[in-house]
């Protein structure tokens, strides 16, 4: 009996997501103790409304990071994609076609990140630092610094329509999570991603086209960033040129908190979902506890470092456990 219990405990501690999950539970308990309203129906609704926007971006960043690359441009694309929708609509293009075109453009810009990185063999950190500045600049140039008029003809309901305390965006987030989990854990492509990020030389030697794997993930990451931007813009019914500023850092933090390795080859989709929840709950909980909102960044910083330390420490211990 004791034997199996220990074995189960060891397996649980070896889960990549374990430290983020523990931190999430602790944070929820602390905020609930500070303010009982934290777990009220209304507040849970508020949190679930804002989580998908970060979560969807972070999922793309996670997939790309597992394949061994980095994307800093997600925050800028997050604004660029909805701005393009406004631009297309104001040019008289059909609203649905405008959405499709803007998403295709995001996909293409992700392809550009990938192409520049892979063709010239430069670090994706550099490529996407560059494109981060370029797309943000483009957003400011196009908008002139002011939010463009938001067309009432845009079909917002399918992305952010209300359903009780939820919005439709949480379903999109759930759907994308399941889909990406499936691709990563249950398909040959997922295996190629782990191999590419884990040991590119070995992956190539076994005939895996690592360039193709990375390119596909660059494109996926940008598509999801653009898509999440559309969700936020539809929820707020405006497109602020500043939206998504700093989002790349939050997305990387959510990814790393969830147990994905910066060096690639290791990571999970579920961990990133937990990481995204953790970040948005800290954000919201501090407000509920009436703490000055400036504390938000401090806590996210602490959570990120703590999660990685915990992860390393817990795994080391669990490995040495005898059972």
């Amino acid at each position: 009996m004791r034997h199996t219990l220990l074995f189960t405990l060891r397996r649980a501690l070896l889960l990549r997501e374990i430290s983020s999950l523990i931190m999430l539970l602790v944070v929820i308990l602390v905020f609930f103790a500070l303010s009982p309203l934290f777990l009220s129906r209304e507040n849970v609704g508020v949190v679930l409304e804002i989580i998908p926007e970060l979560g969807i971006v972070a999922l793309g960043v996670t997939m790309l990071m597992i394949a061994g690359e980095f994307d800093l441009s997600v925050g800028s694309l997050f604004a660029f994609c909805p701005i393009m929708i406004s631009l297309f609509v104001s040019e008289g293009i059909h609203p649905i076609l405008s959405i499709v075109l803007a998403l295709l453009l995001s996909l293409l810009l992700g392809g550009l990140n990938g192409f520049v990185t892979l063709y010239f063999g430069i670090p994706s950190f550099i490529t996407t630092l560059g494109t981060m500045l370029i797309w943000r600049g483009a957003v400011l140039l196009i908008s002139g610094g002011w939010p463009p008029p938001f067309s009432s003809a845009l079909p917002t309901a399918f992305l952010v329509g209300r359903m009780g305390i939820f919005r439709a965006s949480i379903l999109w987030f759930a759907g994308i999570t399941v889909l990406l989990w499936f691709v990563l854990e249950r398909t040959d492509f997922g295996n190629w991603m782990f191999a590419t990020g884990g040991n590119q030389v070995a992956a190539r030697a076994m005939g895996i086209d690592t360039g193709k794997v990375k390119l596909a993930n660059f494109m996926l990451c940008s598509l999801l960033a653009g898509f999440a931007g559309v969700i936020q813009s539809f929820r707020l019914e405006t497109t602020l040129p500043s939206m998504g500023g700093g989002l790349e850092m939050e997305a990387i933090a959510a990814t790393v908190i969830g147990g994905t390795a910066l060096s690639g080859g290791v990571g999970t989709v579920i961990g990133t979902v937990i990481g995204s929840f953790l970040i948005r709950i800290i954000d919201n909980g501090l407000v509920m506890a009436r703490a000055p909102s400036y504390w938000f960044r401090v806590f996210i910083g602490i959570a990120t470092i703590l999660a990685v330390i915990l992860n390393t420490f817990v795994r080391e211990r669990a490995r040495k456990m005898r059972c």
Partner: peptide, 12 residues
């Protein structure tokens, strides 16, 4: 061909 460090992905 089995090269030492290129044969396996350690974390997999």
């Amino acid at each position: 061909t089995i090269y030492q460090e290129a044969a396996m992905v350690p974390k997999m």
